[in-house]
Design a protein around this nucleic acid. Structure first.
Lengths: 376, 376
DNA sequence: ATGAAAGCGCTAACAA
DNA sequence: TTGTTAGCGCTTTCAT
């Protein structure tokens, strides 16, 4: 019924590429040949230049002709070739995004934020997964460059100066989540130090003294910064960071699981654990479950990253929430500012370092430690 | 240290577009002008055609010249312009992907599968979010077409014949997860009927008779099919599908929450609930939690979609797992088959309907009903 | 206000 | 084997 009415709207023409120029087409709706501006121009009885002007909403075209062109475009169901346009004008209206772990929900939400902002400004998004490999990342960046994306947003894998080249060549680039060492500009990140500090303080305030951490990848600024926040809070409270309470992970589930196993099997296990990202928290909880260590009864767990499921967990998870969506939006805004300085968002200057606040969400996985501490 | 060595590798040249042809550049490494094949050709002392042949690994070029060209390319850090190439050859090596809800982890994993397969074959992926809106979807498809993507993978929003046009014009298109009514080809989906049937059977086998369902969007095949599987199992067991036990949702968290609230507040609440996707399950669990209805003590919950967190839930969630990654990979394979019939995967013929098995993962959120049923 | 023509950087005949 | 050349579909001066 109503579906029938939609038929005419399908915005597509054929894709078979068979070329034999300047022949018949007067009304080529059913032809397999892709339509060009010339076809539209011919049908409307104007020049290609006029069609171009109409397509791009330029003025200097009489209303009458404008209407004729519009009609012809509709009749032919014409879709301007962006590839040809891009070649001509030197822009593609596409931006690239490289993430190290496409299966991590954190990046999903960041991408969501980017997509939202990009769409509003007429940009499309090419998504690449580096899988955490520096080589893959280089390949992906190279591909993106060859595809002439107008810019890229990058959650880098490498802390070296591997991106110096890009920056020096003024390829518009914005870092998110982590920044290579030495970079202090053109990035949007969470306040990881503060987030970890707040989290650790919360645990300490609850009375914990045996606090452990499952750290992330220490080659990445996000990994390092969270450890720093942790240490800072511990030092302020004059609490030692015992070596056996420090577990180095890699932001993947398994490392959280292993860290949990090791920590909870200690002769004197920690009464609280800070986990540095969502996946590791999952692994950690799994370990606790298997070892039948009740949470928060016997161990409090506080994890970085907050998602819908964290609040439905049992115990409901206390977490450090990052403004994922906002990270994506601001990163895209910053990139837009680089692409078009005139339209730069004053809140997000092109080469600034944006540090967004995290939020401690206290739920039920954290509680005072089980046994009384040593009497004073 | 080692970071220093990497500098030379940066695969990028400048992007400033200032044109003034045929002038100086002999060694233009530091120039802001983007390099072209002509530059490489000049430096190597060959013709552009030769450079093209080398870039595309064609034979018919002497080793000696090939080496010279390679050297020149490296020296200039030349990156072939894919836009120009695409315009010329009529292919972009890009495929489009339109999902209705980019924040749903299900699609994330599907995209992951697609990306993996796409990368292997030299395709890039443009990701679009339709947000479930048919209009947005049309816009996105139109944009993708204008960008001349070689094909697209679509989790459609619409069950009408809105895609007839595309299909008729032979635009390479593969549906995933849901198919528009009337379509029976060119799609990769889960066996939703069987999945829901198995799930419902599991509940019935546990002894449940008061079984409810929180259904998904019934305009979509995935929504309808899961209800069908549910009904089939209920009928076979001669169990009624009470009207008040049938809650229509929309695959979003809130609708699961509302469904849960309504069901669990019933005078005679169900002892088991089938939830038709991950987000609704989350909402449902939240409702159960707030109403202090123990699961599985008082109500068993079985949800569609399985993710890492489901197994770490407490109770660990019994779920119907869909082969998300496989859906993505097969969809991409099917699309590749359409793009290049010669290389079609025999297991995934271009215009087939691939129905992939789901897997019931029994964990702890399902158990026998609490109270004895009516004595016989 | 309109159109003719010259490319954007690349590939693919076709010549040499 | 190598080079010359003619476009791919579009935008943009520059005449008219």
């Amino acid at each position: 019924m109503s579906s029938r009415e939609k038929r005419g709207q399908a915005p597509f023409s054929g894709t078979k590429r068979r070329r034999k120029r300047g022949l018949s087409p007067f009304l080529a709706t059913t032809s397999a040949r892709p339509l060009t501006m010339v076809d539209v121009a011919r049908l409307a009885g104007v020049s290609p230049a006029t069609v171009s002007a109409v397509v791009n909403d330029k003025d200097g075209v009489s209303e009458e002709r404008r209407a004729r062109v519009r009609e012809a475009m509709a009749a032919l169901d014409y879709h301007p070739d962006q590839i040809a346009r891009s070649l001509k004008i030197g822009r593609t209206q596409v931006i690239g995004m490289v993430v190290p772990d496409i299966s991590n929900q954190f990046f999903l939400e960041v991408v969501h934020g980017i997509e939202t902002e990009a769409l509003q400004h007429g940009y499309s998004l090419i998504l690449c997964n580096s899988g955490g490999s520096t080589e893959r990342e280089q390949t992906q960046l190279s591909t993106l460059f060859s595809r002439r994306v107008d810019g890229a947003i990058l959650a880098c894998t490498d802390s070296s100066s591997a991106y110096d080249g890009l920056i020096r060549r003024r390829f518009p680039l914005v870092f998110i989540d982590r920044v290579p060492v030495g970079f202090t500009r053109g990035a949007v990140v969470s306040n990881n130090v503060q987030g970890a500090y707040d989290a650790t303080r919360h645990l300490i305030d609850l009375g914990h003294t045996r606090v452990a951490i499952v750290a992330g990848d220490l080659r990445l600024s996000s990994g390092v910064d969270r450890v720093e926040g942790f240490r800072k809070a511990m030092q302020e409270a004059h609490l030692p960071v015992r070596e056996e309470y420090f577990r180095r992970g890699d932001f993947q589930l398994d490392s959280g699981y292993r860290g949990g196993q090791e920590l909870l099997r200690l002769a004197e296990p920690p009464t609280a654990i800070l986990s540095c990202n969502n996946k590791m928290t999952l692994g950690l909880m799994r370990a606790a479950g298997e070892l039948r260590v009740p949470c928060p009864g016997r161990v409090s767990v506080l994890g970085f990253d907050d998602f819908e499921w964290a609040a439905s967990f049992s115990p409901r998870l206390t977490t450090v929430a990052q403004p994922t969506h906002e990270i994506g939006r601001r990163a895209m805004k910053m990139l837009l500012g680089k692409l078009n300085p005139a339209s730069a968002d004053p809140d997000t200057p092109p080469d600034s370092l944006i540090v967004l606040d995290t939020e401690l969400r206290i739920r039920e996985s954290t509680a005072p430690p089980p046994a009384p501490r040593y009497p004073t």
